[in-house]
């Protein structure tokens, strides 16, 4: 196919590739490089990787940032905690999002766009403000505690804010649309006659769901789960506003190393290790996404 002349093709593909090379790929290489430096009091605050000694370049790889990461228990526990929080939140998102997506996909054609709009609408209003709203709901004299006390369910306010629970709520709340949309896109394509065929062959509804619908929606489940899990691992705003103070997530660690300690090499090493943890999920997501975008034709 020759839709454009050779130079036109080069321009169409070349400009975005160049932009992303410079502003997306090269930065990662720089992060990778700095993670092998040592911190120093200068501008920039890290040692160069190449030094000139007797007129020839010498490569100086410092492992100190990584050594630091694996000896100080703070980092390891933060990584594990982040993975746990992301995993639990993803499961909760799936548990809430799947029936919601299913209900939308099964509702009549006229109300589907309205329901989808209702799912997406909060996404168009500020993420930060929506997380902030939960502070008002969850804190000791917040709405939830006040209502429960007024109803006489409890007599002392529950500690809801600055708990794992609050972080789960925050992540599920913020990422729910990202779970529902791919699930809906998948479920909507399902052929209703398959369920009828299953019923015809004697499967009860629950069994038909488990044997027919669930396996078919697997791609949607994976896509939605990755869209929640991957960014949640590095989440910064939600744990900072709603989370515990004694156990922080790795995104916060990175930010603190960088802004508070001004230790760029350790911040970079933290980032590289997050990437290593996420490289498989990210590649999986890209494969799904590519298949989805290319199957549309």
């Amino acid at each position: 196919m020759r839709l454009t002349t050779a130079s036109g093709r080069r321009l169409v593909a070349g400009i975005p590739i160049l932009w992303l090379l410079v502003l997306f790929l090269v930065p990662f290489i720089i992060v990778f490089r700095i993670s092998f430096s040592e911190v120093r009091l200068a501008i920039p605050p890290y040692t160069p990787l190449l030094t000139w000694r007797h007129g020839s370049p010498v490569l100086q790889l410092h492992w100190s940032a990584y050594r630091f990461l694996f000896t100080d228990p703070l980092y390891i526990s933060s990584y594990l905690y982040s993975l746990k929080v992301a995993a639990v939140s993803t499961l909760c998102c799936l548990g809430l999002g799947y029936p919601m997506a299913y209900a939308i996909a099964r509702s009549d054609a006229a109300s589907r766009p309205v329901l989808l709009m209702l799912i997406v609408l909060p996404f168009w209003t500020s993420f930060l403000l929506r997380v902030y709203a939960w502070i008002g709901l969850l804190k000791n004299n917040g709405v939830i505690n006040n209502v429960l006390m007024y109803l006489g369910v409890i007599h002392h306010p529950l500690a809801l804010l600055q708990t794992d629970f609050a972080v789960y709520i925050g992540i599920v709340y913020s990422y729910l649309p990202f779970m529902i949309l791919p699930l809906y896109a998948n479920l909507e394509k399902h052929d209703g006659t398959l369920l009828e065929a299953a019923a015809d062959l004697g499967a009860r509804p629950l069994r038909a769901f488990v044997r027919v619908t669930l396996p078919q929606s697997f791609a949607g489940i994976v896509a939605g789960a990755l869209l929640v899990f991957i960014p949640a691992v590095g989440e910064y705003v939600i744990p900072t506003l709603l989370g515990r103070t004694d156990q922080i997530m790795i995104g916060r660690v990175l930010s603190d190393e960088f802004f508070e300690n001004r230790d760029w090499p350790v911040a970079s090493a933290v980032a590289i290790v997050i990437l290593l943890l996420l490289v498989v999920p990210i590649m999986l997501f890209q494969r799904l996404e590519r298949r989805e975008l290319e199957a549309a034709r």
């Binding site: 593909a13 975005p16 590739i17 980032a271 890209q286």
Partner: peptide
């Protein structure tokens, strides 16, 4: 460069923001 472009346009969507932010500043 097709694979490269496809990869570089889907990755930022899920990339944790702290990593993108750090790498851009260092750039």
């Amino acid at each position: 460069g097709r694979m490269l472009l496809a990869g570089m346009t889907t990755a930022p969507i899920v990339m944790p923001e702290v990593i993108t932010g750090l790498s851009l500043l260092l750039l």
